[in-house]
Design a binder for these strands. Structure first.
Length: 342
DNA sequence: CTTATTTGACCATC
DNA sequence: GATGGTCAAATAAG
């Protein structure tokens, strides 16, 4: 168990070092430095997760975020803090604002997004940020195939639509590898085409939310020619339905010591010297259908902002905020920022 | 029987 | 005319 803790603490230290340097930085952040730092942090946590998974009960490990979050084309930074910053729990500002305050200079767009009411799961799921990925699509189309005004929609859109965003998603290693990864939305396949100069057919999906037929979200899924283990998923138009997948289940482990709110150890994550092994931890309560955060973000490319992802169920003040940035047009990097209170 | 998927045809765009 | 996107009938699955 000591080696697990050592790896976790190493990862936390890397994250802490990065946070310190970001807070102290007066000038613009060097993306290259940020990239390397994030890779180091993600790799450190990933190593820890692999060890934990190899030893912990499968019911815990199958939902861990960190191991599922690695992939090509983007970088994740996972920053765990255990602190007594009760200003976070004081109410008033939204979860969005609170979490955003943690990374004041990291990405200017993010702050402006928040100011504009960017997506926050706790408050306004999937509200979208047009400034980053383009505007909304054309007029809604009814199930009959006609728009609300009775006109027929155009049947082809050869031009690249505004509002589209393409992501590369690793093929799931389990289950049917021909199926696109589940992003939490109820997609319905409506077509498939063989594409010129492509080795794999392209499948067309539209949102199948029963409760909101006017949703115009669509996506195209195709295996990448250069990497059959990767899907290229192109999202066209944003969701206008209420079927936003639920990102809240980030089952993780919290020290049982935090239940008593007696963490005054100065921030090393080990309350009062109590053993901080798996045997001293308890799983965060599951709140809904398990949907991996990675998939949720891939299905919500416009969802930028802070997300209230989980309540520990163990302590009123033990709340985790998930801070996600998914800027496809910003070199494909993302930063996840998780804050455990108490 | 209902719902989802497949697939050839159709149409707009290049 | 070639190509990509969509429709809708046929088919499969639950």
């Amino acid at each position: 168990m000591d080696d697990i803790l050592s790896q976790v603490f190493d990862a936390c230290k890397l994250a802490g070092d990065l946070e310190s340097s970001l807070r102290l930085s007066a000038g613009p952040i060097d993306p290259g430095f940020l990239l390397l730092s994030c890779e180091d942090i993600a790799g450190a946590f990933s190593d820890a997760v692999h060890v934990i998974r190899s030893r912990a009960p499968s019911s815990y490990t199958s939902h861990l975020l960190f191991g599922e979050a690695s992939g090509e084309g983007y970088v994740q930074a996972i920053h765990l803090l255990r602190q007594g910053d009760h200003a976070f729990c004081a109410g008033g500002p939204s979860a969005n604002d609170m979490a955003l305050s943690g990374l004041p200079q990291l990405v200017p767009e993010l702050q402006s997004t928040a100011a504009m009411g960017g997506s926050s799961y706790a408050n306004t799921p999937d509200t979208g940020v047009d400034a980053l990925v383009g505007g909304r699509g054309e007029a809604p189309v009814a199930p009959s195939g006609r728009r609300a005004d009775g006109s027929l929609p155009q049947r082809s859109c050869r031009k690249r639509k505004e509002g589209t965003v393409t992501q590369r998603v690793p093929v799931l290693r389990t289950g049917n590898m021909e199926m696109p990864p589940d992003d939490g939305y109820p997609w319905r396949k409506y077509g498939q085409k063989n594409i010129l100069d492509s080795s794999f057919p392209r499948s067309y999906y539209r949102c199948n939310d029963k409760s909101h037929y006017r949703c115009e979200a669509k996506k195209k899924v195709q295996k990448a020619d250069d990497d059959p283990s990767t899907f290229e998923v192109t999202y066209c138009s944003g969701h206008t339905c209420q079927a936003s997948p639920i990102p809240m289940l980030i089952p993780t482990l919290v020290p049982s010591g935090s239940v008593n709110g007696d963490d005054d150890d100065g921030g090393n994550g080990n309350p009062q010297g109590a053993p901080l092994g798996l045997e001293a931890m308890q799983p965060v309560a599951s709140l809904s259908t398990p949907i991996h955060m990675q998939n949720w973000l891939e299905g919500n490319p416009r969802s930028i902002g802070a997300l209230l992802v989980a309540h520990s169920g163990l302590c009123e003040r033990s709340v985790a905020f998930f801070h996600g940035l998914w800027a496809q047009n910003k070199s494909h990097f993302s930063v996840f920022y998780v804050v455990f209170l108490d």
